[in-house]
């Protein structure tokens, strides 16, 4: 059994190594994006616009939950006037980037893996190679870039909608003064440390989740079983990577405050 674990471990490291080399080879293909921006635009639609509804709905619910939980907790200290700050900080620093990344991995990431994996399985990628068209810049790079670009935008929209959800519950439903809500948020949320930190996080998450998704699709075993396993692996790996990186980034960025 130990041998099996060892073998699995070495296979995992090998897989990650191939992923790294794959990432490097993507760099070469970026030049095409300047010449064929339409490819990128189409992918931003597929990956960004299509994920937007789920992000907005989830953001609203999470914001409302924060408003409720925050109120229930703070009211015990008589500090419900700080609700705005609590909701603002939680969303911009953590929940905005992280939850958006997780939802993205599940919805857009899995779609990317399945799509590319299917192209692999139906020999479409091979056909492109035989037609002397490099599939990496044409198929993979637009999807990768779209994911990285889209993630911070989605996270920002998640946070904005969440803030309104928190306002809805805290101020409109539970009676925290509206002005106090927004002003305590304004006082407590720092542009560099909170908002920008959240944006940086979502860029990193976008990079990792999309990289995992396109790589798993590209390297999938070209059978139906292979593609479905690659898809699940992409979602799981991407989600765990987001959570792990979140801890690391939070520790680095918020240690002095």
């Amino acid at each position: 059994m130990v041998r099996g674990l060892g073998r699995a471990g070495i296979a995992a490291i090998h897989h990650t190594g191939r992923g790294g080399m794959f990432l490097v080879s993507l760099v070469g293909g970026m030049g095409m994006m300047v010449r064929r921006p339409r490819l990128l635009v189409q992918q931003i639609y597929a990956v960004g616009v299509m994920t937007l509804p789920i992000i907005l709905v989830a953001g609203l619910f999470v914001g409302m939950m924060l408003g409720l939980q925050g109120f229930n907790t703070l009211v015990g200290f008589g500090a419900e006037s700080s609700l705005g700050m609590a909701v603002g900080l939680f969303l911009t620093r953590e929940l905005g980037p992280v939850l958006t990344a997780l939802l993205f991995a599940g919805r857009a990431g899995s779609a990317l893996t399945a799509e590319i994996g299917l192209m692999r399985a139906t020999q479409q990628l091979d056909a492109m190679e035989m037609m002397a068209v490099d599939p990496l810049p044409r198929v993979v790079v637009p999807r990768f870039l779209a994911g990285v670009i889209v993630m911070p935008l989605l996270a920002a929209l998640f946070s904005v909608v969440g803030l309104f959800g928190g306002y809805l519950v805290g101020a409109v439903l539970l009676g925290v003064d509206g002005g106090t809500f927004w002003s305590s948020m304004h006082e407590g949320v720092d542009v560099v440390h909170d908002v920008l930190a959240g944006v940086f996080k979502s860029l990193v998450f976008g990079f990792v989740v999309t990289w995992v998704a396109v790589f798993e699709g590209y390297s999938a075993i070209p059978t139906t079983d292979g593609v479905s396993r690659a898809t699940t692996r992409a979602v799981v790996t991407g989600s765990l990577a987001v959570l792990g990186l979140d801890y690391v980034l939070t520790a680095i960025m918020f240690s002095e405050v």
Partner: peptide
Amino acid sequence: GLYHLRRRMGMLFQFNALLS
């Protein structure tokens, strides 16, 4: 060079491999 050569070759794949 390989891509150059492939431009002079055509291939019909077993399952057609049309770009969906």
